[in-house]
Amino acid sequence: MIRVMGVDKTFLPGTPDARPLLRDFNLSIGSGEFVILLGANGAGKSTLFHLLAGTESVDRGQIWLDGLDVTARTEPQRAQWISRVFQDPRQGSAAALTLEENLALALRRGLPRRLKGFHHALSRAVATVKELGMGLESRLQDPMQLFSGGQRQAVTLLMATALRPKILLLDEHTAALDPHAEATILALTERTIAAQGLTALMITHNLSHALRYGTRLIMLRGGKIALDIRGEEKKALRLEELYAKFGAEERT
């Protein structure tokens, strides 16, 4: 599904502050995999997300999605295949637009925006809002800025999956939430990924979440893959082991 081949990315290239973020980076992710990305700050997790989503372009190398070379595609062009949930709940929806309008916007992700009223396909999205069980379906006319962080993140997740994406990128999407909201959003995330059979990548700093969720675990360090385990091996991994590995990676 995703193939990252020989990618180089340098921070502030051509300046005295230039710092390599990724060097000859290779990664292959199969369809339906739910990959947990671990790593200290500056390990390259966010850079990898930016390169996949197209917010930043590679210095060298290629990125393929589902048999298609998307290296030269812009961020809005890639939106038809890739959807994202951000760490900051305020980033995922337009604050001044109503819940309904945000949903309508998501129903045309990566598709041409037509001169046609936005209400026509909305009922499908409203049904998914109802399924959340948060009572948001009665607040369709409220602007998003009136919603709590957890509610906004739930809506962002609905918006990201309103049209099935080929890849779902979750960038520490529960890090800004209180523990209760975090549990709700993680459960919703797992349910949605399973229901739609999505290929997903999730960045987290929470090691127990890293063990509990996902089918594959990748740890980055200094722009390289330091650990890559999946399946039974991942299931067998215990928190102390992972903690030791994480720590060991940090110390070396």
Binding site: A53, T55, E75, P76, Q77, A79, Q80, S83, R84, F86, Q91, G92, S93, A94, A95, A96, L97, L105, A106, R108, R109, G110, L111, R113, M159
Partner: peptide, 11 residues
């Protein structure tokens, strides 16, 4: 209102 979100939505 939110250019980051708009681009992520393909706008």
């Amino acid at each position: 209102n939110n250019p980051i979100m708009a681009r992520a939505m393909g706008v």
